[in-house]
């Protein structure tokens, strides 16, 4: 019942903070993969089973929007929910992301509780049968101090 998670962000610092936040959220983690851009993320997706993608938008080589387009267009990958964690917060950009099928959106700077809440929502929608097995105390844990 653990989830394999892929984080795509060109900032190693941000990947570390997101990983720590997800670990503290109580979501059971299987494998945790990291990519510095969309291109690296696609390479990981080609050879690993991933349950959810947390991605920045503004990345070198291949940005998050291009990654979302590639995932949505791929029959083997479009089952994977993608959540943007980004400073790019304009309505126009978010409308574009919604049209492409983004599953969730977290604006930087963020509170850990926001990531936890959106991650749970997205995982529940995508994998309801697996979330039922999660211990109740993990679902109810709201304390996420760094």
């Amino acid at each position: 019942m653990a989830f394999n998670i892929l984080v795509a962000d060109d900032s190693e610092t941000m990947r570390t903070v997101i990983k720590k936040t997800v670990e503290m959220s109580g979501v059971p983690i299987g494998e945790f993969h990291e990519a510095a851009n969309g291109k690296e993320a696609l390479a990981i997706l080609e050879s690993n089973w991933i349950d959810v993608i947390l991605s920045d938008i503004n990345m070198p080589e291949m940005g998050g929007m291009e990654l979302l387009k590639a995932v949505s267009a791929n029959e083997d990958l479009n089952r994977i929910p993608l959540i943007f964690i980004t400073t790019e917060s304009s309505d126009a950009r978010m409308d574009e992301a919604k049209k492409l099928g983004v599953a969730g959106y977290v604006k930087k700077p963020f509170q850990p509780e926001i990531i936890k809440s959106i991650l749970y929502d997205v995982l529940e929608k995508a994998y309801e049968h697996r979330m039922v097995d999660m211990p109740a105390d993990e679902n109810d844990d709201d304390d996420m101090d760094f």
């Binding site: 400073t87 917060s89 304009s90 126009a92 604006k107 930087k108």
Partner: peptide
């Protein structure tokens, strides 16, 4: 990024 969200709301 946050500043631009205020100065350039149309993105």
């Amino acid at each position: 990024g946050s500043l631009l969200g205020k100065l350039d709301p149309k993105g």
